[in-house]
Computed example of a mutant assay.
Amino acid sequence: MKTLGTHNYYVYILTNKTKTVLYTGVTNDLKNRLYWHQNPEAIDKNFTTKYKCFYLVYFEQFSDIETAIKREKQIKGWTRIKKENLIKEFNPTWKFLNDEV
């Protein structure tokens, strides 16, 4: 068990190669989650596999899972334009950040 205050949770946004689809998720292991988005099981029929959302363009780090989940739900409820503005503030060129985590 981790010591209090050492937990890491991430809210993240993925897109496809042409940046036409956005997916928001939450995880406690961003690097591993990205791996599974990029290497889905053959039987997976989930959203990120269907729309090829494998490219990380945004993430936030939290130490509390409840706060992370609340933030994920907040972002999921936003319009596309509001999500794009959030990404642009964090990552102005929409660079794929997969290799940086």
Rank of each mutant, 00 (worst) to 15 (best):
D64P: 05
L22E: 08
D44G: 03
E66P: 00
N46T: 11
K70Y: 12
K19L: 08
Y23L: 01
H37F: 05
E66N: 15
E41Y: 06
D64G: 01
K52R: 08
R33Q: 09
T79E: 13
R71S: 06
Q61P: 00
Q61R: 10
F59A: 03
K50S: 06
W78G: 09
T24K: 04
G77Q: 12
I69R: 15
I81N: 15
K45L: 02
Y12F: 11
Q38P: 09
P40A: 08
F47P: 00
I13N: 14
Y55L: 01
F54M: 02
F59T: 12
L14I: 10
Y55E: 12
T27C: 10
H37A: 03
K45Q: 14
V57P: 00
E60A: 03
K70H: 11
E41Q: 12
I65W: 04
H37L: 01
K45W: 00
Y55D: 13
D29N: 15
K73R: 14
K31G: 15
W36I: 11
L56R: 00
L30K: 08
T15C: 13
V26H: 03
V21Q: 14
K45T: 10
G25I: 03
T24G: 07
N39F: 00
F47D: 06
T24W: 09
L30C: 10
L34R: 03
D44V: 01
V26A: 04
G25Y: 13
C53V: 02
V26M: 04
V57E: 01
K82A: 09
E66M: 04
L14F: 00
I13Y: 08
K76D: 12
I65G: 01
Y12V: 10
S63R: 10
F54C: 02
Q38F: 04
K50E: 07
T49R: 09
T20S: 13
K70Q: 07
D29A: 13
G25N: 11
Y58C: 01
K31M: 09
F62S: 04
Y23I: 00
T20K: 06
Y35A: 09
I69S: 12
R80Q: 15
I43Q: 12
D44A: 07
I13A: 15
E72H: 08
Q38T: 08
T27H: 11
K52E: 07
L56G: 02
T18G: 09
I43R: 12
N32G: 12
E41N: 13
R33H: 07
E41H: 11
V21G: 11
K19N: 15
L14M: 13
T49L: 02
Y35F: 03
T15W: 04
K73L: 03
K31Y: 04
E72I: 06
K82T: 15
K73A: 07
T67K: 14
Y12A: 08
I69T: 14
T49W: 02
T48Y: 05
L34G: 05
F47M: 05
I81F: 07
Y58L: 01
T79H: 03
K70R: 07
R33G: 05
D64H: 05
Y55M: 02
R71H: 05
K17S: 15
I43W: 09
Q74G: 06
T20C: 08
L56P: 02
